[in-house]
Design a protein around this nucleic acid. Sequence first.
DNA 1: ACCTGAACACCGTTCAAGT
DNA 2: ACCTGAACACCGTTCAAGT
Lengths: 234, 234
Amino acid sequence: MAERRSAQQRPPLTRAQVVSEALAAIDADGVDALTMRKLADRLGVYPTAVYWHAGNKAALLAAVCEHVLAELELPPVHDGTDWQEWIRAMARAARATLHAHPNIVPVMGGQMQVVPSSFPLVESVLTVLRTAGFEGSRLTDAYNTVIGFVFGWIFGELSAEPTDADADWTEAFRRRLYSASPSATPVLAANLPHLAGQALMLRWESGSTHPLDSSFAMAVDVLVAGLAVVARAT
Amino acid sequence: MAERRSAQQRPPLTRAQVVSEALAAIDADGVDALTMRKLADRLGVYPTAVYWHAGNKAALLAAVCEHVLAELELPPVHDGTDWQEWIRAMARAARATLHAHPNIVPVMGGQMQVVPSSFPLVESVLTVLRTAGFEGSRLTDAYNTVIGFVFGWIFGELSAEPTDADADWTEAFRRRLYSASPSATPVLAANLPHLAGQALMLRWESGSTHPLDSSFAMAVDVLVAGLAVVARAT
DNA sequence: ACCTGAACACCGTTCAAGT
DNA sequence: ACCTGAACACCGTTCAAGT
């Protein structure tokens, strides 16, 4: 139980403090460990004070997601920006930002709906894609292609680790994977050294500790090259 | 409180029953509404019986995710399969499967780690990508590119709706979006009719009720075209 | 405006006991 | 093996009251 000084002895809490303390707690212990009560303790305050600033837990988590997204430093867009280079730089920046807060990423994945702080991101992506030749409803499709690809891919990379409690389950899977039948799954069996622990759905460690750098590099190559082809086909 | 017949009067519960009842409950009411106790009620059983079959809640959710993934009907792979067509068909099948159970998808997104039932998927994707010209560590990268793209994109499309409780918040965002400054965000403002409610991060409805069909079509075009370019560059 | 303090309904999980 | 029954520690949230 944290020490709790009386309200008069310190400046009043702000919403921004609540949100960044929540993010710090999530970064440290994961999102499942975040509790309105524990957060209040960290802030030296009663749980109801958190409610006053944050509304409720869902709203607090949404605010944390927005705070993280706001940390994203977009590459500048100017006249003559190379759209392919810009998309590569944006993808790198997005990945760096999400890797800095991997524990909140699964929550962000479930909240990709309505994010006010995304306006600059939206505007930049649209501007750049227009120079690639997309317009009208195809501009929206291209935007969704890019955003869904970049963020969705990183969400997958950063999906949560199995908990410690699943240690034996993980071990069992590992064994089952290494004894994959060369007759039923020959290509898998032949490529095990490259795949095990490195391929999506065949890993037991999150991308936060085992980043998939070369795969992400190829994914971005594919995105940019594919966009170029599709833009030309208009 | 559901009627609860005594244990002797009905056949014993199975793990499969527990898992599919959990999925049915999630499909109906969402994942937040699923409670070990409510699930037990649906099954006409005490909560501890659920624990006997499913271990704990995290394991139950993992089992539900695996069950959904097992529903995925992969297109057949044979000699002479066109890799581009196969990837398109697989992407469509994956999307259909996830759209059939949108409420569990955010959980799947956070669990994309270790999924035994994914072996056939892995084997098929690897086989097909080899015919496209990928080998060794680049085969793993190409696999991650495809899986991360297809599933990640759909995760984004199916991210959860804001709850009813956020109705006024949603309304406020909608208003803010429609009054987006043409000077600060000109391209956004000019394309609002296409974007509002249809672009990732600018929507207030999930892809389960408002599917992003044309965007997904373009995304798949981009993926396949980009893979072809990158494969050639080897 | 901002916070304390107490309370309510509910939840995941465990343990002992039954059959 | 499979389930009942009771219990524990904890949680999100609300409401009234203080300053």
